[in-house]
Structures are given as structure tokens and as C-alpha cells.
Amino acid sequence: MPTQNGNNMSVIRTEGLTKVYNPDQVPVHALNGVDLTIEKGEFTAIVGPSGSGKTTLLNIIGGLDEPTGGKAFIRGTDISTLSDRELINFRLNHIGFVFQSFNLIPVLTALENVSFIMQMQGRPAKECREKSIELLEEVGLKDKINKRPSELSGGQQQRVAVARALASKPDFVLADEPTANLDSVSTAELLDMMAELNEVEDMTFIFSTHDQRVIDRARRVITLVDGKIDSDEERTVDSG
């Protein structure tokens, strides 16, 4: 059992997480007591049929929604107790997001998109620029730094989004169906890149996905059914 102090602290820990929609009318129990621990460096996929509660779970551990009951700890902080303002800052500094679409600001270049989040953190302009270039190089977009999203392919846009997610030095990256709009080659490239970041930099990735290609690459697969964890499977995956 991970402690709540020191470096051994879990990245994410939930205790009896419940979420009920429409509690006064027709209650819908989206989560029914989810206990979950995710450690640093995990490459985890959360899967399950529609309505299983994975959306709700990701919203809550991403600090975008509040649980009805239970607690969600990020690095030991109970995020359900944070105010709106604290939560925004918490997301900015602790969580990296990669969404399915609408990830990037269309009027900014790849470099500016990555830089933007660091600017919001109040880091010096020079550092933002250098770090952004470094991250874009890391995701294989060295020659695309001055391109706008509309000039990039879907796969390239998702890679910029990953670079942006990493730019804020988060505790983990939440990726919502990151491959949903990508072809096989782009999906493979994106997964390779994220797997490499996971291995080399020990970055924690949590995916919500239906994509078997993503599930096949995950080292841990958590399956939700009816708001409960149905299975939690650790696997050894060939990173190649």
C-alpha cells in the first residue's frame, strides 16, 4: 500500500469513488465505489463499454468533475476539497491533457501552442521557447515548429498535444481516445512516441480508449463495468 508521503506516494489514488447523476429525479450511478491506485511510470488503459463510467472516472481524476462520494488523491492531495481557482491551478501544474480533438489553439503555431501552457505557469519566455523546441524535437516535429494546426496532419497534431501536455511537467498525462481520429501508421507512431516517453522519462500515461491497438500496448488494463472495476490486469508488453 503506497504511503501518502515521500517519493513513494501514488500518482493517483481513489477511495470509494461514487458519482450519481440526477440524484433527485432518476438517479444514474455512474461510479459505484471505485478504489484505484496508479503509480508513477504506469502506462495504463481504462476500458469498458459505453456507460461503464470510464468517462466519469477520467473527469474526476482529471479535476474536471466532482465525485458524489469518496475521495480522489493526486500526489496525496484530495482534489475534491479544492476550490475552483485551486483546481484550475492544480490542473495547470499537475495534469497533462491530450484530448480526442480540439486539442490545439488553431491560431497559434506548434511552438506557440506548446509554449502557451508554460507561459500560463509563469515561466520565463526564453525557457518556454527552448523547452518547447526540445519537446517538439522529442515528438519528432523539429521541422514543423512554425506550422499551425491546420498545416499539420491529425497524427502530428496529437504529437503537438503530447508535447504540450508534457510541457507543464505534469505528474501524469490523461489521454482521452488520443488515437480515435488517426490512421494505423499515425496511431503506431504516436503510441511508439508515448511508450518511449514513458520508458525514458518515466512519465505516467492514462488512456481512455476503445482502440485495441492502444489496449495491446498498455501495461495495465483496467476494465470498468457498471461503474465498478471489473478487472485490473497487469501485463508485460513488448515496447518495440
Binding site: G62, L64, D84, R85, I88, N89, R91, L92, N93, F97, F99, S101, F102, N103, I105, P106, I117, M120, Q121, R164, S168
Partner: peptide, 14 residues
Amino acid sequence: TRELGMLRAIGMNK
């Protein structure tokens, strides 16, 4: 709406 939502989600304050 979605873009502004994304910005708010990644940490752009009010």
C-alpha cells in the same frame, strides 16, 4: 466552446 473548454481544462483561469 470546445476550444475555450480545452483551454479552461488545461489550466487557463477565469
